[in-house]
Design a protein around this nucleic acid. Sequence first.
DNA 1: TATTGTTATACTCTATAACTATA
DNA 2: TATAGTTATAGAGTATAACAATA
Lengths: 152, 152
Amino acid sequence: MATVESRTRVHRLEPTPPADQVWSMLRTFFGRQKRRFLIAASALDLHPAQAGALMHMAPGTQLPMTELAQLLACDNSNVTGLVDRLEARGLVARQSFEQDRRVKHIVLTDEGVALRKQLLAQIGAPPPGLGRLSASEQRQLADLLGRALDGA
Amino acid sequence: MATVESRTRVHRLEPTPPADQVWSMLRTFFGRQKRRFLIAASALDLHPAQAGALMHMAPGTQLPMTELAQLLACDNSNVTGLVDRLEARGLVARQSFEQDRRVKHIVLTDEGVALRKQLLAQIGAPPPGLGRLSASEQRQLADLLGRALDGA
DNA sequence: TATTGTTATACTCTATAACTATA
DNA sequence: TATAGTTATAGAGTATAACAATA
């Protein structure tokens, strides 16, 4: 935890107001997306944490429970109950991992894949504002964001 | 991981729409910011929902409880307990509203303002990746995002 | 009658600690 | 000894329904 915090801290030589402005705008996007996410999760009868967990499970991948706990920034013990309920609802399954029998892999069931798809249909679509930029502006935006994301 | 994601979208008639690409990148930012938010809240002994509520309270503003519930995308009844605990900790206060005596306004206390500032210091700083763009690129990014946000 | 905020209930999340089974 | 996952416990979030006070 403290390691992650200190890793994100950067000392800049000079203040960069444009970056602050960009970040402020991105946080506006973030706030809107968060509400959109909560509403979409509720509509699918998913607790926010459950919906968040599903979002971290790409179809076809095997996710160790410890890794899921790290992605959710919570304790391992929470994941047990979380997965219990998702499993009871038939959305995910536990798979034992023969190479290390302490580990259990979480995988989406077909039903889980379908529900995740519904969730993505509601929160995965770009907000209308992006569509008002021209195609070349959108490509420009993608390029800038891509470079800002690289190794960040 | 990314390989599985992209496998789900092989069937496309035209090259990846730039808006989808931009939105995908923004969602990557959101995911990282969400973890950053959870870690920062935990460090200040705030439950995620409590930290989220504080973020919606600008210092000096009076926020009706119903409005807070809408911002948090949750039921009014949840806000009662949430505010109870923030109030017990001395971070916010309830103010009766004389124009409509059904309404109660939530305001930050001085201590609440200070804690909110600490929270913002941890999640309000731009991620390091943005600093690697040149100043003119950052301004370009701010311009594009600003127009995408307008009226969205 | 409708709305604001509260209470009551049941379920879920979250952190901590102790435990097991593996390594 | 260390790690992955579980269990137990206590405190907090969340949705629903019913309620009192006010509009």
